[in-house]
Design a protein around this nucleic acid. Structure first.
Lengths: 314, 314
DNA sequence: TGTTACCATAAGTTATTGCTTATGATATAT
DNA sequence: ATATATCATAAGCAATAACTTATGGTAACA
């Protein structure tokens, strides 16, 4: 059985009119064209759908069945068009994001703002570590990832969109915290609590010190940014973290930024997608949004942090 | 938007495999043939449905939507085939009958038997008068009508299928009821309670008497067979009715058949359909059934009646 | 680095589709 | 009986649908 939508369409009109000639008018066709479509449909199901008694047309039992089917199928097609239209015009859609845990805090702020102007959009946000992020991209499980600089090895397209200042922190009573200016030489006498090898932050820090031809002493490795900050609070060592993650600690005065020469190290947050990935409409819009407007939106969040930075320099 | 079922079918297979080559195998097609169908479908909705990242294929959001649609549409098509198949093979269907009120009693018996061997079939039975029956045929509101001989004027196809003996009846105490043989001459001295002019029975009776070049006296005209029998019971006159309608009255001994010379008048019951009407499968089967098997089935119903007939002749 | 698996694209062929106009048949209305 | 309205059928035509084979490009893998 190989029906065509055309047959169903024409049959529907005929079934409604019960008159080939006027159906032909509605369809802007000749009358034989209509007869032929119906005849072909009848051949497909190998049974008459319309019968002519005297001058009047009637649907047979199977004709009624077929008419129901035709109408339902056509309605479904309309629904599909509607759905696709909505997906295209962002009245609907699903934005699948994944972010590095260190980026979580400010991304939430971005999303809150973005979601307001796209109320019908469903958003999934996965907060996870760097290797999981890369795996998710690999498996095409999300549209976009927000993280630090991704490795070059993967086929990724990464666009920097926001400064990510890495600063040195310690507990407020630490003697370096009080100094107006701390040299790198002074700093590397201290021991450090670090992110694990291979993490974005760790790589950046290593690169920074090796550029200065210096080495630092790692007391502890940790895979979690929060744990690192906690360790610093407890005096286990100096920490170097993204200033964006310090909002609470600075406000509560459990950590202080140390004004080290050469710091902050300005890195960037990146929006990352797989190379060749065709973004869904909503993902395209979101990417545009953060590329163009992220600075403005997160300004009232970052401004107080930068104030802390300047404060430690005075 | 002008999709084809072919496109949906091919797309469904590809969406399941996420691999054009193996989809092509399942469809017994070359790989490019599959690519082309999918591409055409994408052109229809003007948006990609499948994306290729590296070596793997993924459905886009709209692709997922389209896949759902394709599956649902194809399922509906299967359902339709199923339904049509059932309608064709009588596992389903709707038999629309109309019968003359005088035929009601034995038709019910026929139907009871028929329905047993076609349990899934829905049956509509309209019991009404002669002119309504003809109107229903005219308007194609029923498949078949069971009635006495229909007029020739309409474009009808009428097939006799069962004897319809018209007998003279009166109340048991009537002096003619006791006689072994009553001549027509004797009979026409009596007054009659008759069906209305134009009714099948009336026409038959008039023809019978005019063939004998005799006339009868009509005391009352009535449009209802039951009323006529009741009038005869009350002694308002002789009645000539289909013996098939007398089951109860003979059993209860409220009426007796009068053994008149030349009676019973053997007329027939007819199955009637509009000329050119294509009967539905179930209607075809029902017509076959009554044409071939009606005598057998109603035998145990008519036999006792014929017994009464013979009894009045002894 | 070359090999492999896989998809995209191109060119060419055949059958079919979807329509048109012209004409024939038929039931109802006049 | 004739006219009218309506559907069926036939013939013809242009567009295209649905394939095929051949070939080229590319990501993954060894």
């Amino acid at each position: 059985m190989n029906l065509t939508f055309r047959q169903l369409k024409v049959f529907d009109v005929v079934a409604r009119h019960l008159n080939y000639t006027s159906a032909a008018k509605e369809l802007h066709l000749s009358q034989p064209a209509v007869s032929m479509q119906v005849k072909q449909l009848e051949e497909q199901v190998d049974t008459p759908l319309i019968e002519k008694l005297g001058k009047k047309l009637y649907l047979t039992d199977i004709g009624i069945e077929m008419h129901n089917y035709a109408r339902s199928t056509m309605q479904q097609l309309i629904d599909l068009e509607e759905t696709i239209g909505q997906l295209k015009t962002l009245q609907q859609g699903h934005l699948k994001l994944a972010v590095a845990s260190t980026a979580n805090h400010f991304v939430i702020r971005l999303l809150a703002h973005f979601a307001k102007s796209h109320p019908k959009i469903r958003i999934s946000l996965d907060v996870t570590n760097r290797s999981s992020l890369l795996a998710m991209l690999e498996k095409n499980e999300c549209d976009l990832v927000i993280m630090g600089r991704p490795p070059d090895a993967y086929n990724l397209m990464a666009s920097p969109f926001l400064e990510n200042p890495l600063v040195v922190v310690t507990y407020p009573e630490h003697y370096l915290a009080a100094k107006k200016k701390v040299s790198l030489k002074e700093l590397i006498k201290e021991e450090f609590v670090m992110r694990e090898q291979g993490s974005g932050t760790r790589i950046a820090i290593e690169r920074f010190f090796s550029n200065q031809e210096m080495e630092f002493k790692t007391k502890m490795d940790m895979s979690n940014n929060r744990a690192i900050k906690h360790a610093a609070e407890e005096g286990l060592g100096m920490a170097i973290v993204s200033m964006h993650t310090l909002e609470l600690e600075l406000k509560a005065n459990t950590l202080k930024i140390v004004n080290v020469e050469g710091f902050p190290i300005f890195r960037h947050w990146y929006v990352v997608q797989r190379e060749g990935k065709r973004l869904s409409p909503i993902a395209t819009v979101f990417k545009d949004y953060i590329m163009k407007g992220a600075d403005d939106v997160v300004h009232d969040f970052t401004a107080p942090l930068y104030a802390h930075l300047e404060q430690s320099a005075n």
